[in-house]
Write a protein that binds this DNA or RNA. Structure first.
Length: 886
RNA sequence: GGGUCUGUAGCUCAGUUGGUUAGAGCGCACGAUUCACAUUCGUGAGGUCAGAGGUUCAACUCCUCUCAGGCCCACCA
C-alpha cells in the first residue's frame, strides 16, 4: 500500500474501472444479483440526436446516473435504457450539407435511396462516437437494450401506432395552412419556427375606398376581401358591400366583411386577407367560405394563381408589384422604419412561408381515448394525468407552463416532406396504368395499413404508391418509453419497467417531447410514461450565456474529463444549482472538484497506509474516544441528511453536505486527531477499524456522484462483501446508529472552539508561529482533551501563567507572549463588546416582550434564552480581557 | 401583450414548510509547510439579502407594488 501515488490520476483508473463495470453485467437488470421480487426502477435515457457528438448539455445525464446508481445500491431491479434519436430534419440537413460541400450535389441528384444510404453511414459513425462518450462519463447504461428510433422493431411499432390512431379517427389528412420552409422543403411544427426581428418597408396601398398596409405586397395580388371591425363607425356603411377597384393585375371586385379580427387601432383599421399565407387569414377564410388558393408555391415562387406573374420569386414579385402600384398611383406611403418579427426555420434560418398543403394531423380534441374508463381527448388526458398527480413535475412551477401549453394545443401536423425518417404507412392507388383497370373515385382514398398492400382494395390495381412523406421525429420519440421496452408485444420488460420511474430532461424540451410522450403513451398503453418528470436547467458559461460556437465559449465534456477527471466534471455539473435552474459551468469550478477528488484520494491513501490490512469493516467498531463518538455522530447525521436530500432530488445539497463532512470534519479534524490519539490506544493502533468503517460508508455515499474513484478505492480493500461497490448496500440510518453520550460531541466542539480561538489570536496578533503560548483556566466541557488542545493550538497548559495574560473564551486565558502589541487587540475587543451589547439588548427586549413569550414555540424561547446566556458569558470574558489589556 | 424565473460577499451560487448576530467555493490579504494531500494547512477582510410598503411576537424566507436582467409562449395586417 505504500506505492500509492501522491496525487490521484484519473486517467489510469477510469478506463480500467469502466471495463470492469461493463464486464460485470450489473448494468443489466437481468444479471444483477438481486432477489426475484426486487422492486423495479427504470429510466429511459432521453435519446441524444445523432447529428453531432455530445456536448455539455448531454453531460447532464449524470443526474440520471446518480438516480440509477442510487437505486441499484438500494437493491432495486434497475434499468437505465440507452438509445438515440434519428432527428430526421436535423440529420438529413446535415448530411445534405456535407454532400453539397464535398460533391456539389443535391438530394435530388443523389436520389432517395442513395441519400438514405449516406445518412445511414453518417449515423453509424456518430452513434459509435456518442456511445464512447457516454461510457467515458461513467454512465451505467444497459447497452444490451440499446435502441435506435429507426430500428425495424421500433418502426413497426410506430406504424402500428399510426394505423391504430387512424382507425380511431385520431389521425386525419387535411388541407391546412402550415409553416413551410422553402429551403428544407418541408413543413415545420409551430415549435420548430423561430422569430427574428427584421426592419422592412411597410407599404400603405389605396384599396378602393380603403387604405391597407402590408410588409408583403407579393401576397396581395389575389386579395378580394376587406375585413373591418364591426364597431368601427368609419366603415359601417361598407358592411357586406362589394366594390370595384383598380389593382395589381387589372380591375377587380372586392367585398367587405365585418369581423372582430380587425383591430381598429391598427393602421387604417381595414385589412385585406390572404387566406393561403397567413394563419389568421386562413381561419377567417374558412369562417366565411372564402376561396383558399396558394399564391406562393413550395419552391418559394408565385404560382399560376398569380397569372402572368407566375414563377417570380417573392422578392422579385414584391418589387414588381410595388412598381405597378406606384405607376397606378395606389401607393400612399412607405414607412421605412418598420420592424416586425420575421418567422424563420429553426434549423436553417430561412424565412418560413405559411402556405396551404395536404398533410397528416393528429386530432387532439376528439374524445376517443379511454382513460380510467372514460372517453377523453388526448388533450384532456394530458391535462388530467398531471392534475391528478399521476405524473409529478419537478420543480412544480413547470406544471403551470405545461397546462398553458396543452390548453392552447392545436391539431398536430405530423407529416414531414423529408426522406429520412419513418415513412408514413399510407398507399395511394395510381391504378389506371394497367390494362383494363377502371379507376374509380374511391381509388383516391388512401389505404392506411402497416404492410405494403398488394392491390387496391377498390379497383384491384397493383399499382400503388406509398406516401412519400415521413413522420415528425417527435411522433416516434413520443413513444419512446414503451417502444424501447418491446411494445406492442406484451414483453416481460414492458410489464416490469413500464411506467418508468423518472423522466429526467432539460426544461427546454418540455413541450417538444415530454408533452408528446404523455399524449402518445396514455393513448397506446393506458399508462403514464413516467411517474416523475425531473427538469434540469441548461448548462451555461460563467456569465450565464448559452454555449455556442460563435461565442467561442463551448466546453467539451471530454476535454474536461481528460484534464480534471470524470468524477470532478460530474460533481461540478451537479452542484451550485437546484432543479429547473440553469447551471453555470466554468473550468475553475471543475478544477475545484478535481481538488476535492484528490483530497478524497489522500484521505483514502492515509487510511489505507495507516492500517495494517486495508479491509472492509462492516459493523461499527467500539468507540474509544470522544472524537470517535463525535465523528460517528457526524457521519450518522450526514448519512441521514444525504438520504433525506436525495429523496427530494436535492442532489446539489447532498453533495455539499458530504463534502463538508469529508473535508472539514473528517480530514481537517478527525484524521488529525487520530494521528494524535491512535498510537496511544495500542490495541487499535494498527487496525483502526473505525477509520475503515468510516471509509467504507463514505465510499458508498459518494459512489453515485463520483463513481470512479470510489470504486477504485473499494477494490483496494480486502474482504469486501460484494465484488463491486456499484452493487453495495446503500447506507441508511441504521448503519451508523449509535447510542453514545452527547457529552462526547460537545467536548469535541468545545475543543474546536478553543483551538480556533487560539489560532485566531496567533494570526491576528502576528505571534510568530514558533512561539509556544501558555493556556490556563478551567477547561469546562473540553476537560480531558487538553492534549489535543496543546497539540492543535501549539500551547502549553499551565496552572500559573507567567507575565501578561489575555482572556480567551470560556474563562480561559493565554499568556507567554513576547513582543506583542496589544493595542490592536484592545480596539478590536472594544468594538466586539459594543456589538455584543447591542445584540444582548435586542435579545433581552425580545424575551421581555409578552407577545413573543406567549406566541413563540417553547423551543424557540429556550433557544433565545440560551443565546442570551452565552452572550452574557462572552461579555464577561471581554470585559475581563479589556481590564488586562489596559 | 400573456406567463415564468432570477436579483444574497469582488465572482459563481446555496439558504424547501418564517425563528443563526446570513453561508460555501473561487478570488483577495496575512501566516505556515519534511510527518496522507501545495490539487495542502491555518487565519482574516468583504453583504442595510435589488428598492418601497404590508402581514407577523419574528421576514433573505409570505403578500403587494416598483426597478433591473433572463427565459418561454403568442404575434398582428
Amino acid at each position: 500500500m505504500n506505492d500509492l501515488p501522491k496525487a490521484y490520476d484519473p486517467k489510469n483508473v477510469e478506463d480500467d474501472i469502466s471495463r470492469a463495470w461493463e464486464a460485470s453485467g450489473y448494468f443489466n437488470p437481468d444479471t444483477l444479483p438481486i432477489p426475484k421480487n426486487a422492486e423495479a426502477f427504470s429510466i429511459v435515457l432521453p435519446p441524444p440526436t445523432v447529428t453531432s457528438t455530445l456536448h455539455l448539455g448531454h453531460a447532464m445525464y449524470v443526474i440520471e446516473d446518480v438516480m440509477i446508481r442510487h437505486a441499484r445500491m438500494q437493491g432495486k431491479r434497475t434499468l437505465w435504457l440507452p438509445g438515440m434519436d434519428h432527428a430526421a430534419i436535423a440529420t438529413q440537413n446535415k448530411v445534405e450539407r456535407i454532400v453539397w460541400d464535398k460533391e456539389k450535389k443535391t438530394r435530388h441528384d443523389l436520389g432517395r435511396e442513395e441519400l438514405i444510404r449516406r445518412i445511414d453511414a453518417f449515423v453509424a459513425d456518430s452513434r459509435s462516437t456518442i456511445t464512447n462518450q457516454l461510457k467515458k462519463m461513467g454512465f451505467s447504461l444497459d447497452w444490451s437494450r440499446e435502441r435506435f428510433t429507426l430500428d425495424p422493431a421500433i418502426s413497426r411499432a410506430v406504424q402500428k401506432m399510426f394505423v391504430d390512431m387512424h382507425t380511431d379517427g385520431l389521425i386525419y389528412r387535411g388541407s391546412r395552412i402550415v409553416n413551410w420552409c422553402p429551403r428544407c422543403q418541408s413543413t415545420l411544427a409551430d415549435d420548430e419556427v423561430e422569430y427574428k426581428e427584421e426592419r422592412t418597408p411597410f407599404y400603405y396601398f389605396k384599396y378602393g375606398p380603403f387604405s391597407i398596409a402590408t410588409v408583403r405586397p407579393e401576397t396581395k395580388i389575389g386579395d378580394k376581401v376587406v375585413i373591418v371591425h364591426p364597431k368601427d363607425k368609419r366603415y359601417t356603411k361598407y358592411h357586406g358591400k362589394t366594390f370595384p377597384l383598380p389593382w395589381i393585375d387589372g380591375d377587380i371586385e372586392a367585398r367587405v366583411i365585418a369581423d372582430e379580427a380587425s383591430d381598429p387601432e391598427l393602421g387604417s383599421g381595414a385589412m385585406t386577407i390572404t387566406p393561403a399565407h397567413s394563419f389568421v387569414d386562413f381561419e377567417l377564410a374558412k369562417k366565411y367560405g372564402i376561396e383558399i388558393e396558394n399564391i406562393i408555391g413550395q419552391d418559394g415562387r408565385l404560382t399560376n394563381a398569380a397569372g402572368k406573374y407566375a414563377g417570380l420569386t417573392t422578392q422579385e414579385a414584391r418589387k414588381k408589384f410595388v412598381e405597378i402600384l406606384q405607376k397606378k398611383g395606389l401607393v400612399e406611403k412607405i414607412d421605412e422604419n418598420y420592424t416586425h418579427n420575421l418567422t424563420v426555420c429553426y434549423r436553417c434560418g430561412t424565412a418560413v412561408e405559411p402556405l396551404v398543403s395536404p398533410q397528416w394531423f393528429v386530432d387532439v380534441n376528439k374524445p376517443v381515448v379511454t382513460w380510467k374508463g372514460v372517453k377523453k381527448s388526448l388533450k384532456d388526458v394530458a391535462i388530467e394525468v398531471v392534475k391528478s398527480g399521476d405524473i409529478e413535475i419537478i420543480p412544480d412551477r413547470f406544471e403551470k407552463t405545461y397546462f398553458q401549453w396543452i390548453e392552447n394545443l392545436h391539431d398536430w401536423c405530423i407529416s414531414r416532406q423529408l426522406w429520412y425518417g419513418h415513412r408514413i404507412p399510407v398507399w395511394y392507388c395510381v391504378g389506371d396504368e394497367h390494362e383494363g383497370a377502371v379507376c374509380k373515385l374511391e381509388c383516391r382514398q388512401p389505404v392506411v395499413q402497416t404492410d405494403h398492400p398488394i392491390e387496391c382494395r377498390y379497383c384491384g390495381s397493383k399499382n400503388l404508391r406509398q406516401d412519400p412523406d415521413t413522420l415528425d421525429t417527435w411522433f416516434s420519440s413520443g413513444m419512446w418509453t414503451f417502444t424501447t421496452l418491446g411494445w406492442p408485444e406484451k414483453t416481460r420488460d414492458l410489464k416490469t419497467f413500464h411506467p418508468t420511474n423518472v423522466l429526467e430532461t432539460g426544461y427546454d424540451i418540455l413541450f417538444f417531447w415530454v408533452a408528446r410522450m404523455i399524449l402518445m403513451t396514455t393513448y397506446a398503453t393506458g399508462e403514464v410514461p413516467f411517474r416523475t418528470v425531473y427538469l434540469h436547467g441548461l448548462v451555461r458559461d460563467k456569465e450565464g450565456r448559452k454555449m455556442s460556437k460563435s461565442l467561442g465559449n463551448i466546453i467539451d465534456p471530454l476535454d474536461m474529463s481528460a484534464k480534471y477527471g470524470t468524477d470532478a466534471l460530474r460533481l461540478a455539473l451537479m452542484t451550485g444549482t437546484t432543479p429547473g435552474n440553469d447551471v453555470n459551468l466554468y473550468e475553475e469550478k471543475i478544477a475545484g472538484y478535481r481538488n476535492f477528488v484528490n483530497k478524497f484520494w489522500n484521505i483514502a491513501r492515509f487510511i489505507l497506509t495507516t492500517v495494517e490490512t486495508p479491509r472492509y469493516v462492516d459493523t461499527m467498531p467500539t468507540l474509544a474516544t470522544d472524537a470517535d463518538r463525535w465523528i460517528i455522530s457526524r457521519l450518522h447525521e450526514t448519512t441521514r441528511g444525504v438520504n433525506k436530500l436525495m429523496d427530494k432530488y436535492q442532489y446539489g445539497l447532498a453533495i455539499e453536505k458530504l463534502y463538508r463532512f469529508t473535508w472539514n470534519d473528517l480530514a481537517d479534524w478527525y484524521l488529525e486527531i487520530a494521528k494524535v490519539e491512535r498510537p496511544v490506544i495500542a490495541s487499535e493502533a494498527k487496525q483502526s477499524p473505525l477509520l475503515l468503517f468510516i471509509l467504507q460508508n463514505l465510499l458508498k455515499l459518494w459512489h453515485p456522484y463520483a463513481p470512479f474513484i470510489t470504486e477504485h478505492v473499494y477494490q483496494m480493500l480486502n474482504g469486501h462483501p460484494k465484488n463491486m461497490l456499484m452493487i453495495e448496500t446503500w447506507p441508511n440510518e441504521k448503519t451508523t446508529q449509535t447510542t453514545f453520550a452527547h457529552e462526547s460531541e460537545r467536548a469535541i466542539l468545545a475543543m474546536q472552539d478553543i483551538v480556533n480561538a487560539i489560532r485566531e489570536k496567533r494570526s491576528w496578533l502576528a505571534i510568530p508561529y514558533t512561539t509556544t503560548l501558555e493556556l490556563s483556566g478551567k477547561m469546562g466541557k473540553a476537560k480531558g482533551l487538553e492534549h489535543l488542545i496543546e497539540h492543535f493550538g501549539k500551547v502549553k497548559m499551565v496552572k500559573k501563567p507567567q507575565g501578561k495574560t489575555l482572556a480567551l473564551t470560556n474563562g480561559l486565558s493565554l499568556s507567554g507572549f513576547t513582543g506583542v502589541n496589544f493595542e490592536k487587540e484592545h480596539a478590536k475587543t472594544k468594538k466586539e463588546l459594543k456589538n455584543l451589547e447591542g445584540y444582548i439588548t435586542g435579545l433581552a427586549k425580545k424575551l421581555a416582550n409578552e407577545k413573543f413569550t406567549s406566541n413563540a414555540p417553547k423551543n424557540i424561547i429556550e433557544q433565545e434564552r440560551a443565546k442570551l446566556e452565552a452572550a452574557t458569558e462572552r461579555v464577561k470574558d471581554l470585559k475581563n480581557k479589556l481590564k488586562q489589556l489596559t
